[in-house]
Write a protein that binds this DNA or RNA. Sequence first.
DNA 1: CATAAAAGGATATAAAATGTCTTTTTAGGG
DNA 2: CCCTAAAAAGACATTTTATATCCTTTTATG
Lengths: 137, 137
Amino acid sequence: MMELTRKGEYAIRGIVYLATRPMDKVCLLSDIAAAVDVPPTFLAKIFQQFSKIGLVRSFRGTGGGFVLGRSPESITLLEVVEAVEGPIIPNRCVSSPSNCERSGLCNVHPVWQRVQDEVRGVLQAVTLKELSTQNKR
Amino acid sequence: MMELTRKGEYAIRGIVYLATRPMDKVCLLSDIAAAVDVPPTFLAKIFQQFSKIGLVRSFRGTGGGFVLGRSPESITLLEVVEAVEGPIIPNRCVSSPSNCERSGLCNVHPVWQRVQDEVRGVLQAVTLKELSTQNKR
DNA sequence: CATAAAAGGATATAAAATGTCTTTTTAGGG
DNA sequence: CCCTAAAAAGACATTTTATATCCTTTTATG
């Protein structure tokens, strides 16, 4: 349970790599894919999703590729994960009240709400800046 | 991402219901299933898992059924969820260091560790006692 | 207009989730 | 000792989700 999919894992790898590159340098998808060891066609889909919401900017044609859409310190891990995995929903009943017929009498409901809040909190506190700079030791 | 499966949802419903019953009263699986609106055959599998680790006790034959294996206040939501969903692993790399080839250089690793800790913390803090007593207003 | 590269759409395969069915084991009661 | 009740165990079926791949289209550059 609670497991990040490959897609999410690849998404993070890809955009973190992009964050390590100078923002004025356009990167080929194929180069990114090779660098982070992800199937290029799969990463393409992921970056298309990023592009739609502005996490990255794309350029077509010769000399095209991708750059980060915003500064690394302004992009949170939460945004990245939710961009490809959808919203973080530990239980259906948390997504909308109507989904939880028993919401009135259900004591479990607030627990999942708390789980959701905690997870989002942790992921929101981390930015691409921190993830892309080697700050261990 | 991060979504509890039906199995987990059913597991909680079933055992919470059992916790509302007097501990000396043996409950039929079919009755529990009907009460919490879960396919009986599916719930059977779930309760078999519970039984193996002692969360519930089972009795076969005439007059058989299930009772809670321990007191409601000693069983946490975490135990229930992990009993049927397996350990809470937000990312493969958290389960064992060897799974994360990049663990040395990977800044994301500690974040998933934190997510895991937070989620486990929330679920561990909740017992069947609290879940089975109507304490809202 | 030829080429490079991303975007979009359709399709394929594998794995996991969600059940169901049948048979076996265990226990109780007459 | 049989008959019945109930859980345990195992095999199977279906649906959904994950994990890609391939082909065509659009867009930009030289």
